[in-house]
Design a binder for these strands. Structure first.
Lengths: 228, 228
DNA sequence: ACTCATAAGTGTAAATATTACACTAAGTTA
DNA sequence: TAACTTAGTGTAATATTTACACTTATGAGT
């Protein structure tokens, strides 16, 4: 390995984010628009170039600040997408991330050019962004099965039906209500708040739960098999 | 996102590999040596710089060719390690990979400066290579639990004790022999070759198995929970 | 050829988890 | 007050997990 050759130092870094949120009923993901020609306005993942003296995480965080005005976020690296796929200026390597946004922070409108959409309605994106998105979807599915990650998306107090909807949408399949309930309760992740509240578009008030952070941290560390 | 600024194009790419093999008794991993001052000769992961017009996978494959003389390999990206951690020439981003080597290819001696060691005996490595190695260890554990990945390391025909040893070493814990046997058999991944052979350092000849590729491919795709 | 040492190979019972499945309860609306 | 909508709940059959110890086949030494 020889780095004594400045010809190696010709690559630029970017980072694209797959951002997930839950509005109380639906799992959503954030898309932006290409700011410049060619294909100005075409849908793309929220993306930024990484400055040579900037950490990739900082660059990713800056995207969240710009698009959603957030400084509180969960961020995880997905993969480096490094196809030899070029701009006129040279090679760009995209170190993609995914991010989970707390429900409480979902009320603000995204900045101009950004919008929340349902993952199923993801349009064709520029560059290899659809590949990045698919990668994120797989990662999210795996995470939600093996870690109690859903709680990063839910409100502090949530109904059983909300967590049920979230897991169904994340995994992309129906989950039997009673069996899901049983499994959640067995996990002891939920704290019964002993109160009920009418949810939007509901009739009978829903029982509220919060989640047990201590136990969450244990399971998050050890890993866990929800096995849905 | 503006890339119309050539000042972004100042980064170099490298790739480090965590290579695993199984010699019939032990899970092994490959270390190299730093070829240049400072710290010339210090242990490091097998690593190369990526040429600006080279795919990262090609660069990683070249490391395997150089160190082990292999052109047949399994390679998977781990993560980009992009700490702002510099050479005099600028920033280097390491897109690390891990690789699994078939047992049949383990007989050749590694090239000068490379050697197989047990993962538990991994020494202090240069740069952030220990962090990369730890990341690989976690990935390997997860993979071995959720995919029938062990078969990429084993000989074509192997004994129950070999796969048992491999899984114990990969997961870093004892696995009850009878329960492990039961689970493997239930998975229907093993084909009984109906013959026995005395293994090295053994007495009673061991029953040989090969593995069912069709079923392997199915499970590899779907994912699988060994749940050890 | 017999004894000893070594690694291979095998089964069962108890506890827990998974799956499939349909009705009642509480409150809203017309 | 009847009709509608969503919330909430249990059971039985099957499958999986766990804990646990002895027998078998061979090689080595006498």
């Amino acid at each position: 390995m020889s780095t004594h050759d400045s010809s190696y130092f010709q690559v630029a870094l970017s980072t694209s984010l797959v951002v997930y949120g839950f509005d109380g009923e639906n799992l959503l993901t954030l898309i932006g628009q290409k700011p410049q020609e060619p294909y100005k306005g075409a849908p793309m993942l929220p993306t930024t170039m990484v400055k040579p003296d900037q950490s990739v995480e900082d660059a990713a965080a800056a995207v969240l600040t710009e698009s959603l005005g957030l400084s509180d976020y969960y961020l995880e690296q997905l993969n480096a997408f490094s196809k030899l796929y070029r701009k006129p200026e040279g090679r760009v390597v995209n170190i993609a991330h995914y991010s989970l946004i707390k429900h409480e922070l979902m009320e603000r409108k995204p900045a101009a050019g950004y919008q929340w959409i349902r993952p199923k309605e993801m349009p064709d994106l520029v560059y290899d962004h659809n590949q990045i998105f698919d990668f994120a979807q797989e990662r999210l599915k795996r995470r939600v099965k093996h870690r109690p990650i859903g709680f990063r998306l839910l409100p502090k107090e949530f109904s059983f039906n909300q967590i049920h909807l979230l897991y169904e949408q994340t995994l992309g399949k129906k989950l039997d209500k009673r069996n899901f309930h049983k499994k959640l309760m067995r996990s002891k992740l939920l704290i019964d708040e002993h109160k009920a509240e009418k949810m939007d578009g509901s009739n009978k008030p829903s029982h509220l739960y919060s989640f047990n952070e201590k136990r969450y941290n244990k399971l998050n560390l050890r890993g866990y098999d929800f096995k849905f």
